[in-house]
């Protein structure tokens, strides 16, 4: 089974409930700087885009890691960091083309989205449905039209 987060920026109001939920899940604190999902705002807030790891097939971070600290969770498909093994070398942060695995100075390790073990708290917290969980093995819901290049059909 392979899960991922589907993100629809059109629905995002930039409330940051996702960042609050993520940081609470992973640190026990409400602290957006430690969230693994980030909302970027543009043009006085006219557009807001939540951004996080896509759990990509290529898994550059995983292959770049010299100590095999990044593994695939068999249940969810999430690429996740074993903090005990991570040596903080940051090679994965260079390898990732999306910038969604990041070094945290206060722990000396890297951190990335781990899909919360299968129930991503950002999706639970999102009040508008901008962040939902996709499960391609069983999915029957529509694919985000943004990913299909809505502009091309307009």
């Amino acid at each position: 089974m392979q899960k991922a987060l589907l993100i629809d920026p059109e629905k995002c109001t930039s409330c940051l409930q996702c960042e609050l939920a993520c940081s609470h899940q992973h640190t026990g604190m409400f602290n957006p700087v430690q969230s693994r999902i980030r909302v970027f705002e543009f043009e006085h807030g006219a557009r807001a885009i939540p951004y996080t790891c896509t759990q990509c097939e290529a898994a550059w971070c995983l292959h770049a890691c010299p100590v095999q600290a990044i593994t695939v969770n068999a249940a969810t498909g999430a690429k996740q960091v074993d903090a005990d093994r991570c040596v903080g070398c940051k090679v994965c942060t260079v390898a990732c083309p999306y910038g969604t695995i990041n070094y945290e100075a206060h722990t000396g390790k890297v951190a990335k989205c781990d899909l919360c073990g299968g129930e991503p708290q950002c999706a639970v917290a999102c009040p508008t449905g901008a962040i939902t969980v996709s499960d391609p093995d069983t999915a029957t819901h529509a694919i985000n039209p943004l990913l299909l290049g809505r502009g091309a059909t307009a």
């Binding site: 109001t13 930039s14 409330c15 940051l16 609050l20 006219a46 807001a48």
Partner: peptide, 19 residues
């Protein structure tokens, strides 16, 4: 009106973004 926008942590999002 272009869209609505939330303040920090807000699940209401009454703010208006216009042009």
């Amino acid at each position: 009106l272009l869209t609505n926008k939330a303040c920090f942590g807000c699940t209401i999002a009454c703010g208006r973004i216009a042009h």
